[in-house]
């Protein structure tokens, strides 16, 4: 069963990823991206990261892809790009060989370190207690402990980051008034 889930979700991930790269229509690429993101969410469930799977579906497949589609529709750039045009002659062979080299390099490293000893978990006391308590929501409890005990400053800083991103985007996307420098 575990194997079956892994194969199906991996097929979703890889087919979607290839779709993003190979489909010449931006809307099709965005929909392929949804397939990949769902596949990754399935993997998260299989790796017992339940909360992250939910966030993955809501934030990535929901918000981010919808944002992409909005921009595509808003700008009217939903015309197919002719993929047969190759601006630089060597670009695609170089890109393909870089991709193959990257996969083989990382693959060799993974296979070489397969038998490496697993480091001891560095969970803090509260996190470990939440994990040991078990139950169907142990993962969420442990994640919350870790986030709000050990990383609470970083968590607060993300709110600053998001405010900056929102303000910056409003400044970037608004139409300048007449006579005003952008």
């Amino acid at each position: 069963m575990e194997f079956f889930v892994f194969v199906c979700a991996s097929a979703m991930v890889l087919v979607g990823a290839l779709g993003v790269v190979l489909r010449n229509h931006p809307v099709h690429a965005a929909l392929s991206l949804v397939l990949t993101l769902f596949g990754v969410a399935v993997h998260f469930v299989a790796l017992s990261a339940d909360f992250l799977a939910a966030v993955q579906v809501i934030v990535y497949a929901g918000a981010i892809v919808v944002l992409f589609l909005f921009v595509i529709m808003l700008l009217g750039v939903d015309r197919a790009e002719d993929l047969r045009i190759e601006p630089f002659k060597v670009q695609r062979p170089v890109a393909a060989s870089v991709g193959v080299a990257l996969v083989s390099l990382i693959g060799i490293a993974i296979l070489a370190s397969r038998e490496a000893p697993v480091p001891a978990a560095q969970n803090s006391e509260g996190v470990q207690a939440a994990l040991d308590a078990g139950g169907h929501d142990a993962n969420i409890r442990a994640l919350a402990r870790n986030l709000f005990d050990d990383h609470v400053l970083a968590f607060e800083l993300t709110s600053v980051l998001l405010v900056i991103a929102v303000v910056g985007t409003v400044m970037l996307a608004r139409k300048p008034r007449k006579g005003e420098l952008v």
């Binding site: 991930v13 990823a17 690429a29 990949t36 890109a95 996969v103």
Partner: peptide
């Protein structure tokens, strides 16, 4: 690793900023 490499190839090959 496969997924990452597909992303890298896509960044190198595609020309649409989106």
């Amino acid at each position: 690793a496969l997924l990452f490499s597909i992303g890298v190839v896509g960044v190198m090959v595609r020309r649409n900023p989106l």
